[in-house]
Design a protein around this nucleic acid. Structure first.
Ligand SMILES: [Mn+2]
Ligand SMILES: [Mn+2]
Ligand SMILES: [Zn+2]
Ligand SMILES: [Zn+2]
Lengths: 140, 140
DNA sequence: CTGGATATTGCAACTTTGTTGCAAATTGCT
DNA sequence: AGCAATTTGCAACAAAGTTGCAATATCCAG
């Protein structure tokens, strides 16, 4: 079992200075149970931070392995927190399935469901397998 | 075995009038072995058609089941031809795997590889499973 | 605790991507 | 050929994302 670490500690471990925008955005991710789009963050921060700052913060978090992006069927960009082992090793291991609810529109990281094997035709060498399931979630 | 039908016939079967832009865009899809983005089509048509026309044409083709969209890890919107049975039944059955090559950047429809089963936690009811594999393709 | 090097932010300006209304042109049909 | 219906191009706009730079905040050594 991995112990829960504070937001400040999380930033420090990733050699990032502790700033208002980074703290606030991480708080939002921890409070939210699903994935968030850039526009969600803009709204939830009440336009306190510049759009550009939010873009740059998200980009930094992705590079550090603190959050990961999720490919969605409607091709909007979503972000969610990574499991702890992503940031510690410096590269992503988000081989879990994502679920998009048709009804409430929440996107879940199903961390317990690992991506299935796929049998590819000869010559194709897989590196990453992204699986996005659309349907009705457990809360709908 | 499904016989190959002409572009005019394909449009007629979908109750679409035969216009220059629709013919040209379908030709591009048939000539191209991978998926295309809106911007690819703009370039390959040499700006002969208005951007808006291309958007509307792609949208019409998706609605008719002539092409389908592909969710990609970098969240760009790609389109590729559907198998014949999509347009005949009026709704999509594109339950095949897509492959994005890290090297040549071509995105393939692997029509022969059907999406695998996924074991979801209790309460989640799947409808569509999108699988996108990233790696090195057979031509690289 | 403070000064100053370094990193981060906000602003402005710009690019790309996508949408909408409407008049002009094209298509399909008689 | 003529006419109704569909499609296109244009203009104007909105949303999403990028870049350079000056102002500000953070961190660390002294
Ligand atoms: Mn996830
Ligand atoms: Mn496909
Ligand atoms: Zn739901
Ligand atoms: Zn390739």
């Amino acid at each position: 079992m991995m112990e829960t670490i504070s937001i400040d500690e999380l930033l420090r471990r990733n050699q990032l200075s502790i700033t208002d925008s980074r703290k606030k955005i991480l708080e939002l991710f921890q409070a939210n149970n699903g994935a968030m789009a850039h526009s969600d963050i803009e709204k939830k921060t009440d336009e306190k931070f510049d759009r550009v700052t939010i873009y740059r913060t998200l980009q930094t978090f992705v590079e550090k392995g603190i959050i990961h992006t999720i490919p969605t069927p409607d091709n909007s960009v979503l972000y969610a927190l990574c499991k702890d082992d992503c940031s510690s090793t410096g590269h992503h291991h988000d081989n879990h399935v994502h679920f998009v609810c048709d009804n409430c529109n929440v996107t879940y990281c199903l961390d317990s469901v690992v991506s299935p094997e796929v049998n590819l035709p000869g010559g194709f060498k897989p590196k990453v397998i992204d699986v996005v399931v659309t349907g009705i979630c457990k809360n709908c």
